[in-house]
Design a protein around this nucleic acid. Sequence first.
RNA 1: GGGCGCAUAGCUCAGCGGUAGAGCACUGCAUUGACAUUGCAGGGGUCCCAAGUUCGAUCCUUGGUGCGCCCACCA
Length: 931
Amino acid sequence: MDKSYSPGDIESRIYAAWEAAGWFAPAGDGTPYCIVIPPPNVTGTLHMGHAFQHTLMDVLTRVHRMDGDRTLWQPGTDHAGIATQMVVERQLAAEGKKRHDLGREQFVERVWAWKEESGGTISRQMRRLGNSVDWSRDRFTMDEGLSDAVREVFVRLHDEGLIYRGKRLVNWDPVLHTALSDLEVLAEPEAGSLWHLRYPLADGSGYMIVATTRPETMLGDVAVAVNPEDERYRHLVGQQVRLPLTGRLIPIIADDYCDPAFGSGCVKITPAHDFNDYEIGKRHALPLINIFTADATLNEEVPAAYRGLDRFEARKRVVADFEAAGLLEKVVPHTLHVPRGDRSGAVLEPWLTDQWYVRIAPLAEPAIAAVEDGRIRFVPDNWSKTYFQWMRNIQDWCISRQLWWGHRIPAWYDEAGNIFVARSEAEAQAAATKQHGKPIALRQDEDVLDTWFSSALWPFSTLGWPQQTNELARFYPTSVLVTGFDIIFFWVARMIMLGLKFQGEVPFREVYITGLIRDEHGNKMSKSKGNIIDPLDLIDGIELEALVAKRTTGLMQPQMKNAIEKATRKQFPQGIPAFGTDAMRFTFAALATMGRDIRFDLGRVEGYRNFCNKLWNAARYVLMNTEEHAADLASGPCEYSVADRWIRGRLGAAVTSVRTHLAGYRFDLAAQALYEFVWYEFCDWYLELSKPVLQGAETDSAARRGTRRTLLEVLEGTLRLLHPLMPFITEEIWQKVGPLAGRKGTTIMLQAYPTAAEFARDATAERDIAALQAVVLGIRQIRGELDVPHSRATPVYVRTDRPGDVEALAALAATIRKLANVESIEIVRSEADLPPCAIAISAGRTVLAPFDRLIDDVSAELARLEKRKAKTGQERDKCAAKLANANFVANAPESVVTQERDRIAEFERQLEQLGEQMRRLAAVAATATER
RNA sequence: GGGCGCAUAGCUCAGCGGUAGAGCACUGCAUUGACAUUGCAGGGGUCCCAAGUUCGAUCCUUGGUGCGCCCACCA
């Protein structure tokens, strides 16, 4: 093995071998375990959030695979209707073309070509991330099979009356020329105005004053509404006003919707361009006057002077004309929520169109029940509240989009406008023929379905439905869904609804909701903020100039360029070093705390890269000490030392901890347990403890064999325990260590995940090693606090009250001497006859080292003891205060009181010892001064 | 308007009804044998504020302050 860990050399080679061997496919006949991937946009690239979620899914997948489950991680990508179409339209725009120049067929071909061209990016990225998905089952939402599923669901829902076509107000994007669902609307507060307009009463007796944020829509007004209880206007209800600029007469009506306290208390009613007004219009049987074209310019319904104007231009003109006519009462500043499309950013227009809807209430009800009764569990649980809140107020889902890229709606029309919903044109034609008595020309609906319609079927469409496949029977319901809270409504809820509807079963049993990955300041990562980190740049590293270029090219707002460049240069003056996949994955796991967003900290990645290096070098040490003894290890008598038995048991404890935490989705705690075991127990203690055994000339061969075997077996078990988090480095090391440890098999990824039973704990060994550690730590403390180099050897005396210590320390004396560079170690009953010493006190044990062998000046030790004494005194006082409280002694549990009594006794003992020691040292110091 | 979350060391975060923790950063010491991507030792906290419950509150309850997110039709 190389002296230094360099991830780049090993990662791609290893992944290729795994993939070629077909090890990612489900195998065996264990319990099925399945995760479906949240399908990323096929033409996109994976960002940090994907890398994070994929890491967690891969960890779960690998653990279950190693545990013998028949494990499937189902991969795939999404066609991402609007997003993808926009990208291709932008490409066309660069060539000076529009999609209509190509026509539908050619345009769609062009999108497919783009999909083929860029579609490999994601799978390449996933391979670099080590994601063990079954590539043989890779699916795309517009694959033939998945499209069959879409049509099947559409037809069946339509047959049941759960899909219908209707003309009503939708959120219209006048830039993209498509309808959007409610979820795709972002309503941000923006500064605007509230215009107070005078509408003259028809009888000329005065004005009504209406307040509006959208004066241009007055051209489509059909009424003025007031609250029926409003004394100011009650007498006017039933009368008419003459609508300025148009001259139309419109009625004054009464409706509870009006809030007398807001504005003037009078509301202009424009049913064709406002959702509230639409409802009021329905209640009062008012006409709808649509004044906008698809571009949101004014149409022929308005007076000639305004036709063809853009809505914002029209606003200025209308306001100016009101002012000119003396009908503008006042204008007050007003912040309002402006609805914008989540893709285009355009201000949306409520617009009257024919669209397809899913009648959602009948589907929502069982989906709510499934979470209520625990068939689906959200982790962390509080996300179920978010789910319920939305599901209980859910609105019908507008599923048609006026786009070209997507699943075309399986509905056909005849000349008369009759609709035939069918799985294919042939089926539609058959129905039409039957109805008309002869074949007839049909025209398919031009619209496509909302991307999320096909995503909603993902857990069963990817498994082969509507075919009744073995995979469907085996893996549905899937085990867990891992995703972000931002798509609970878009995706999770809809999968639950349609899964229950079409499979009669929930689509997954648990939903693990991850936090959002943010930058180090807590900001969302986004291209426009210029704070994106590409996961591959963490793995491979990137030069500063390349990083700056990456962040500043193709910006939507080029004016941000300088600020982004400056911030990037400041944050990464050296660019980003190559940390490797394993370090990045371990970081994600370690940061995956429950229910909390994650500020991504490069320092953590560096720390875990160091951890990889630590593991690498520990393995080198183990191999250096075992490889050439391979034959000898397999046979021959073997004797296990206290340390050998201790470290096996400690690994067992780590196994229990890791398994527990993973079962509860506490990846952070699992990572922490692994880190601590590997670094602090295996490396810091056990490897050091093994050195005297392996390097000492006097050790017998059975003891050497025991330690060598323990080194191998514990390292091998540790590698297996780590593998799901750090697949590459563990595989690389295991290739050498596995066989030496007596393991059969050619890859770590199919080895059994460790169990606690393999590594039994040993209470005696733990007690004895604790004694050893106390002594070694005491000596280190003395040296450390007195700034004495380790190289300065000293005799050591130990006084102990702890049962078993005397025997344990005697047995381990040689080891302690080596570890702590101690000349001799002697157990004493009292300090009285010892030379003046520096001391370290821990519970029940005192470690003493003659100070004249360590330092020249007693005052350093005196100062040190003074500090210790002050600290211990504080603790003692806290304890004493507690025990002085009669209520505490009377009410606290017996064990707590006893514990406090023991503690104070210990503190008193230590204080006394410290005092005694200080007196002795003071005497020595005095003598020294005299001389 | 409704709902959810967060506040602990300089930074990023765990944690817990009884002794406050980690990583990074910081200080001192250490240089031939697994590893300087290292080892050893150390400094550093009003656990946001207030009241309540309790023998005891960083933890539980209530209120407040600050920050963040989601949902919602006040023109």
